[in-house]
Amino acid sequence: MQSAVLKGTQSGYEVILNESSSLEQINIDLKNLLNRLSESNLKKSEDIKLNIRIGNRLFSQEQKNTIMENINSYHGLSVGHFMSNVLTKEDAEAKFKQKYIEPMSKTIRNGQEVNIDGDVLFFGNVHEGGKLFASGNIYNMGNIKGIVQAGYPDNEDKLIIGNLHNAQQVRVGEQYDIVSDNPINNKESTVVYVNDLHLLSYGKINELKEINPKFFNRIGGII
C-alpha cells in the first residue's frame, strides 16, 4: 500500500499519509506521487494547495518542515495545513479550559487575590479589599463586597453576571467602575459588559441577547 495517497474532496485536494509508515517511506512515496502529478495534464498556471491528513499521530515541526519542503519544491504546489485526529495533552487541556466553568466556593479576604484561568461560577465571599480576577466570565451567586474583574487583564468581550450591588469595584478588561459612584440595582442580577463605545455598561439578564449575541448563541439562546 502506498504511504501517500492523493484524494480530491469538496474542499480541495488532500494528501493522506499512512499513519503506520515511516517518514522516509512517506517522503519517497510523496516524491513519486508529486512527480506523477506534475507530469500529468494539470494546468501549470493553477496554484494548488494540498491539505495533509496524517491520521492518528502527531508530527513535530521539523517533520512537518521536511514534508513542506518536499511539496514546495514543485512549481505550483503548496501546503495548506496539517490535519491530525489527535491532540497533545497541552492543547487538549487548553481546549477543555476554554469551555470549562470553574465552580468556586471560597472566602477571599482583605488583601487576598485570586486569579482564575477561564470562567468562574462563584459561590463564595469576596470581602472588602479582596480581589477576584478571571480571564473569562464571572457568574456570581455568592456575596461580592470587594473587587471583581472579568476578562483579566484586557479582554473586553467578557461579562460579569450576578448580584453586584455590594462590590467595591467592577472591572471588565481595562474598563472599571467604582460601584459607590454608580450604584447598581440590588433587586435583580446585573450583567456588566463593555459596550461598542468601550464603556462599562449594565444590563438585565433578559437583555443578554442584545448585549452579547455571540455569547447568547453559544450558551444555547436562539437569536
Binding site: R109, N110, G111, H127, E128, G129, G130
Partner: peptide, 9 residues
C-alpha cells in the same frame, strides 16, 4: 478589616 486580613494570612 485588619482582622479580615490577618485571618486571611
Amino acid at each position: 478589616r485588619d482582622a479580615d486580613r490577618v485571618i486571611g494570612l
